[in-house]
Amino acid sequence: MTPFTYSRASDPQSAIEGVAANAQAKFLGGGTNLVDLMKMGVETPAQLVDINRLALTQVEELPNNGGVRIGALVRNSDLAEHQLITARYPVLSEALLSGASPQLRNLATTGGNLLQRTRCYYFYDPAFPMCNKRNPGSGCGALEGYNRIHAILGQSEQCIATHPSDMCVAMAALDAVVRVQGPQGERTIPFADFHRLPGATPNIETNLRPNELITAVDLPAMPLATRSHYLKVRDRASYAFALVSVAAILEMDRGTIRSARVALGGVAHKPWRATQAEKKLAGQQPNETTFRAAAEAELAAAKGYKYNSFKIELAKRAIRQALTTVATMA
């Protein structure tokens, strides 16, 4: 680990100033990803600004519109069990509980989860000489390497990594909004614009600007979200990242799908909103043919590599299964 200094911020403003004062500074949330990467030598911040004391730990109803605001420091375990979430956004609760382990969820924060980095082996271990994300211009070690966990949608020749979060997949389906505060003040970023596809700059993963602090995630009111499901397919029964995951929400109108919200995890550099599938679902009968057509449409552009081509078929099946589950809910 590279030596670093540590300070503890008491409010958002001082946290932002603390990070802005040092070009090599980083916010420290639960540390479950950052500290790990520091030990591996992937992240080498010169200063850590600990934000764990900031008063951003509330889950609260938004005034007037029935939405919910989640403070950036709400722990994954608290969020998953929060009554506003289990009642209104069960898909988010399911997604959170499918991630990591209880111990990790007790530490992991909402803000940190949004910014957790890829589990690509070539990124995670600097012993690998090639990784455009860690070391721009060095090439992509995964492209012709052991790429079983890598992306099949939206990737580039420069990077085929996936975003590993479960929480974010549900948030993508829920049309969440990320609230941030920076040296220039506050702003909001729609979830779909928060994470980026890799393109030629896989080292730039989000549209956060330098020194911006995530303060909250807003979930819009979505009564239909009670009819939802998070399906995670993984290599073992628990405590494994998704090979493929699906967050699915169906709005039904007298036996017909009025609208659908579907997002995929484990397939792309960002939580993947399945807009092609959603289009195929709207206005259709909820049956096997419809679900199949939706899955086929979403994966039409998918591209697999030596070790991960199976994900294309797996994602199709997971979409069908998740939609079937939601459609048959009371």
Binding site: Y121, A127, G141, G145
Partner: peptide
């Protein structure tokens, strides 16, 4: 699992 080019183990931790 090993990287087919460098021969480095890819899954050398208890998460992978």
């Amino acid at each position: 699992a090993y990287d087919p080019h460098t021969g480095l183990p890819a899954t050398a931790n208890l998460a992978d």
